[in-house]
Design a protein around this nucleic acid. Structure first.
Lengths: 207, 207
DNA sequence: CCGGATCTAAACCGGCCGGTCTATGATCCA
DNA sequence: TGGATCATAGACCGGCCGGTTTAGATCCGG
């Protein structure tokens, strides 16, 4: 359930405030965003905003974790563990890259990374709500695939991490540092396919 | 040569200012760092600081790129291309992870990521001075190794990126989000070895 | 020992920010 | 209908920041 942090009130204007917060935080970052502008964008007075959220940081956390949850849930919903590795890995690769390369994924990641040391709960919460969920799902899929004899893996957790990392190759770092802004479906498919090939070369059935 | 940005003056106090800037920026981030404190730490008056660097952003860029250059150069210096893939890949893996997991590497990365969109030249410059150098060196090593028949690769650039990404698995994201602060040599060696194995499983000599 | 360049401390400026408070208006339920 | 709760606009506060300026100290080559 979404009630992560203490003393966040629910009520009629809750979503309204959160939407305004998302828009401004993602546009301007945590430090760059002004509470006045969030309130204005949300169509709410500053006093109202502060009656729902005790301070700026809690407001940001609530927004960021809601985004991650929604994203991770959407990915996991459509995953079919009965499919063979090539299919499932490609699906996960495209999902993960789709989020990481998207405007929202990029900005949430940037802000969480930037604020992680001045605001440690945020880093942990982001990690739990996003990367960990996908990683665990992939891990348990790999376990079932191994039970079917489709792959052969000793360290499931590390293997899952390796595959996720493989998917990021080239594209993600360029996006992160603004070298490139968007990528064709072909480019993404190329990287994902290469990730699948490399991954299965080590633990695939031919092994 | 270090003269990247326009209108940065050289002089007696140049390094002094840069050292103060490094200390405060890495401790507090870009927004968090105050120019007053940088000047104080550097043992220099604010007026002097502004006579060397036209503004805070240029000062930060100069500091960040100097750090990256130094780091990348140190790695590349000790690389011996005549060694076989397992040796060279392990060396590069340990070097890259050593930097990424270090206090300085972490902070430089965090700040550059955070400021990349409000400050696009910084993202590009960091990318060029750090990741790209290592990637290119690895790429050209892979080319020579392929000439010796030790590996078989069609897309050298993508392969280099894949290996770097494989090295990050598990450890780096935990460090980035503050889940863990330090890692044993054994943990690092385990991840690097797994990266080498996965990488060579696809393109190694047995293939 | 002089004179220009360099450095210094500290005051100063305009501006923005997070957060509080006040005084008024809307809503709702008994 | 009346009173309590909730929302509103916006003034207000203390504080910090990047950057400029001033007025004087210090250095150094000739």
């Amino acid at each position: 359930m979404p009630g992560n942090a203490a003393s966040v009130r629910r009520g009629r204007k809750y979503d309204q405030v959160l939407n305004g917060a998302r828009e401004i935080f993602l546009r301007d970052g945590f430090e760059g965003a002004s509470v006045d502008e969030i309130a204005r964008t949300a169509g709410v007075s500053k006093a109202t905003l502060y009656s729902y959220f005790p301070d700026k940081r809690l407001l940001f956390m609530e927004m960021a974790t809601a985004q991650c949850q929604a994203q991770a849930d959407a990915v996991l919903l459509a995953l079919d563990p009965s499919q063979p590795p090539r299919i499932v890995l490609r699906y996960i690769g495209h999902s993960v890259l789709g989020f990481l390369l998207s405007e929202m994924g990029l900005r949430v990641f940037r802000i969480c990374v930037a604020e992680a040391d001045r605001f440690p709960e945020l880093g942990a919460q982001f990690y739990e709500c996003g990367p960990v969920l996908v990683r665990n799902e992939l891990k348990s899929y790999l376990a079932t695939a191994m039970a079917r004899g489709e792959v052969e893996i000793d360290d499931l957790g590390l293997a899952a991490d390796q595959f996720i990392e493989l998917c990021k190759a080239d594209l993600w770092i360029k996006r992160l540092f603004g070298i490139r802004d968007d990528f064709s479906e072909d480019e993404i498919a190329h990287v994902v396919d290469a990730a699948v090939e490399t991954f299965l070369a080590r633990c695939g059935p031919s092994n």
